[in-house]
Each structure stands twice: as C-alpha cells, then as structure tokens.
Amino acid sequence: MTELVGLSKMTKAPEMTGNFPEPIFPESFNSLIIKSVKKVLSLTYNLFVLFLLVGLPILLFYFSEINYDETIDSGRTLLVDDQETWYELISGNYSVTANDTLLHGDIVTFNYFGEIGEVTYSDTHCESDTTDEYGYVESGDCWTTYYTYYTFEFFNQTLETNSNSLPKFYFCHKTLCEIKFSVIDTNGVPLVSIIQANEVNS
C-alpha cells in the first residue's frame, strides 16, 4: 500500500488570516481634480436645470408683463394745442380726437409755460431685530432712500418726471417751451419721460 499523509497535518493548520496586497490600479487622473471638475460641472448643470425650472418661467412671466403693457400701449402720437384741443397723428395727418385722457404709451407734444416743481418721495427699509447673547433684543437698523420727482402742469393735471428728464427741460421753468413727452405710467399721478423740450421764442 502507498504511504499516506496523516490527518493531523490537515487539522493543525496555522491560524492565518488573509493578507491580500493592494490590487494595482491603472494609471489614473488625479481624483481631487476630477472631483472638483465634476463638482463644477455638476453645479453648472444643476444651476442650468434650476434656471430652466425656475428662472425661465420667471423671465417669461416678466417679459410677458412687458408684452402685456405693450399690448395696451396706445401707440398714439398727439398734439395738444393751447386751446386744449387734442389731435392725433393718423397716416401722417393730425386729426382731432375726442379721447383726451392720457394713456400709457402716448407721445404728446404741447406748449408749456409755468413752474417746474419738485416732490420728494422716500422708501424706508428696516433690518430685522436680533437677540444678543444675554437675551436682549436689538432693533434692526432702518435705511431710508430719498428720490425726487419733478412736476409740471399739463392743463388741469400735474405730471411727474424723474431726474433723468430734468436736464432735458429744466430751462422751461417759467419759460415757454414746446415739450414732447411719453407717458410711462398712468397709475396715480401720471409719470412721463421727457423726450425733447425746446424754448419757444414768443
């Protein structure tokens, strides 16, 4: 009979645990750089998605508001004479119009004589209150912004214009001028923008 290997050799194996060396990975890019680039790309992508989901509807809404205004823009070019007769430019000719109410978008030319007044508005914004480490409540600071509008009379109503228009017509204070303006806002006191003003030699 052939000599056999004894069972004892098999059962008294040394207590060893697995000791794998690290697998050798392929040549790789710097993971920190890749991660940073990935983060940037991911952020860009997320922002883009956010823009598509949130920004785009807001922009559409915003522009649609302008479009809305434009749709009610009168498109009228008017001339109001000293007798307060309103003429509208239609096909190159002025025709008398019965609608003598200022509308958004109207471009109006008229002769003005009078004073240019000013009115100051303010807008106050307060920061929220804070509580300090001892529990005392400190009131937030308030900031007030002042801005001046300039007024002039258009027949029986007062018009306002902002400081951007002032250089264009300041010389009309107590001086006869032909003023051309466009109507920007008709809510409350009508807000207009001076397009052109010329002194009239009487």
Binding site: T17, G18, P23, S28, F29, S31
Partner: peptide
C-alpha cells in the same frame, strides 16, 4: 473583515479615474 475589505476596494474604484 473580508466583507469590509471588499467594500473598501469598491469605494476606492469609485474614486479612481483610469486614463
């Protein structure tokens, strides 16, 4: 220990970008 080591390797390859 074996399972833990396998998980460690899986995490490593997740952050390796072969050229």
């Amino acid at each position: 220990e074996t399972i833990h080591d396998c998980l460690r390797l899986i995490n490593l390859i997740e952050n390796t970008y072969a050229k």
